[in-house]
Amino acid sequence: MTGVVTELAGLLDLSEQYFWIAVLVFLRTGALVALLPALGEQAVPQRVKLVLVLAFTAIVLPVVAAGAPTVTPGLATFGSEVAAGLILGIGLRLFILALQTAASIIAQATTLSQLFAGAAPEPQPAIGNLFIVAGLALAVNAGLHVRAAELLILSYDILPQGRPPTPADVADWGLSLIVSTFSLSFSLAAPFVIASMIYNLALGAINRAMPQLMVSFIGAPAQTLGALAMLAVATPVLLAVWLQAFEAHLLQPFAVPR
């Protein structure tokens, strides 16, 4: 009888430990889903997000629980898991901000910044909405949900459960990733900026040669038409470059970009 009681007590301790591991996985997963592109957008209902968090937790928990250390519940432990999830989510969200930055640069360079102004729920040019919707669709089509589950599992090797991230390492990684994403946004917008500069230099030369000609009345519509044509041709290539960089980050999320 004593042996049975001892075994039951051991099972009770094991189930309690498993419960706290599940809570920590839920916290990290919830913080990631809150910032995850496509699945964590404001348009997604909260109930749908909760179901997604539970689904990711059910996928990640069996893998993590096999090698998880003994968990001591506490505010510090819970806070470290939330911080780890936010770090992962911010890293992914920066690539969406790269699309927004590239779209803003393109809109300013091609006089399309006021096209359909106020039609979007967020104060950004119409090109930004085009890039973001297309980028999110490509990411989901490329298996974003599968990559997100792999990212969560991989994160426990770099950010162990229950241990707070080192501020110095997070700062170095975050700064390098911000530099990399901004460089990506400038690279995406570079063809439009170069074309706009060449076009404006040509208009300046024409205006210098023919001062009586109203160059602005002729040049502005032509610039807008050329920008739209160039946007139609270049958008698939730009989104392919962005998707390649996004998938590379998902494969090695904690690699310091060079």
Rank of each mutant, 00 (worst) to 15 (best):
Y18V: 08
A22S: 15
A22N: 13
V23S: 08
L24T: 03
L24A: 13
L24E: 11
V25C: 15
V25M: 14
F26D: 15
F26E: 14
L27W: 07
R28Y: 09
R28D: 08
T29H: 09
G30Q: 12
L32Q: 10
V33R: 10
V33S: 08
L35M: 14
L36S: 13
P37H: 10
E41P: 01
Q42D: 12
A43V: 15
Q46V: 15
R47G: 14
R47T: 14
L52T: 12
L52E: 09
V53W: 04
A55K: 06
A58R: 07
I59W: 11
A65R: 02
G67Y: 03
A68I: 07
P69L: 07
P69C: 04
T70W: 10
T72I: 13
P73K: 06
P73G: 07
A76F: 03
E81P: 00
V82K: 05
G85W: 04
G85H: 03
L88C: 03
L88E: 00
L88P: 04
G89Q: 04
I90G: 06
G91V: 05
L92G: 03
L92P: 05
L92I: 08
L94T: 02
F95T: 08
I96K: 08
L97W: 12
Q100R: 14
T101A: 13
T101V: 10
A103H: 05
A103T: 09
S104N: 14
A109T: 00
T110H: 07
T110V: 05
Q114W: 03
L115K: 04
L115D: 05
L115I: 09
G118M: 01
A119C: 03
E122H: 11
P123R: 10
P123S: 09
Q124P: 02
P125Y: 06
A126E: 11
I127Q: 11
I127P: 03
